[in-house]
Amino acid sequence: MAGAGSTGSTTTRPASSPWWIRYVVFALLFDVVLGRANFHAGATGMTVYLDVDYRSPTPVLEPIVVTGRQVRVEGRKIWAQGAIHAGDRLCATAEGMFVEPGGLLLENRRRLAGG
């Protein structure tokens, strides 16, 4: 079901916070939103690759909207893309690749259950 998406919104932190905090927070937001978009599209996986392009300065203390959608699935590999907007301003875009854990997940559950 490629194309299913996920959306979230938040308000950015004050300008007095270190510049790198916004970059880390944006990467975290993209990781979460792209992962949820994959979940809603019916395929989930662990993040293998996440590329973020910072397109323009992000306004301080204004709402931002984070969107994501799954764009394709090939076997265990899942690709998703997203964007962060502040109003009409494009602040950042992202592309991520995720990999379904396959049998590893079931094996770990069995091991943790003592089986």
Rank of each mutant, 00 (worst) to 15 (best):
A86M: 08
P63M: 11
M46Q: 12
V33L: 00
A37R: 07
E100V: 05
E100F: 09
G75Q: 01
G102P: 12
G103S: 15
E107D: 14
G35V: 07
L50I: 12
R36V: 05
E95S: 11
V48N: 06
V24Q: 09
L104E: 15
A41L: 06
G45I: 04
D53I: 06
P63Y: 08
H40C: 07
E107L: 08
L34M: 06
S56I: 00
A92T: 11
I84H: 07
H85A: 08
R76F: 11
I64R: 02
P57K: 12
T44W: 14
I78H: 01
N108H: 11
G75Y: 09
D53H: 13
Y49C: 08
V99D: 13
E95D: 12
E62I: 04
G87F: 09
I64D: 08
L90H: 09
A41N: 06
P101S: 15
G68Y: 02
R72H: 10
N38S: 12
V71C: 05
A94H: 01
F98W: 14
T93L: 09
R109T: 02
G96H: 00
A83Y: 02
R55M: 15
F98K: 02
D31H: 00
V32A: 02
N108W: 13
V60P: 02
H40G: 08
F39N: 14
M97A: 00
R89C: 04
T47W: 03
S56T: 02
H40K: 14
T67S: 08
A41I: 06
A27P: 03
R76M: 13
L106P: 03
A86T: 03
A83C: 09
T67H: 09
F98P: 00
A92K: 04
V24H: 07
L61D: 09
Q70F: 06
R36Y: 06
G102W: 07
E100I: 02
V60D: 07
D53M: 10
Q81R: 12
R55G: 10
G96K: 00
G42W: 10
V33R: 00
K77P: 00
F30Y: 03
T58A: 11
G96P: 00
F39C: 13
L105T: 13
A86F: 02
T67W: 04
A37Y: 01
V32H: 05
R36N: 11
H85N: 11
E74V: 06
H85F: 08
L50C: 05
L90Y: 01
R109F: 14
L50H: 05
Q70L: 15
M46R: 10
T58C: 14
Q81V: 15
S56K: 14
V25K: 07
T93E: 15
A41Y: 05
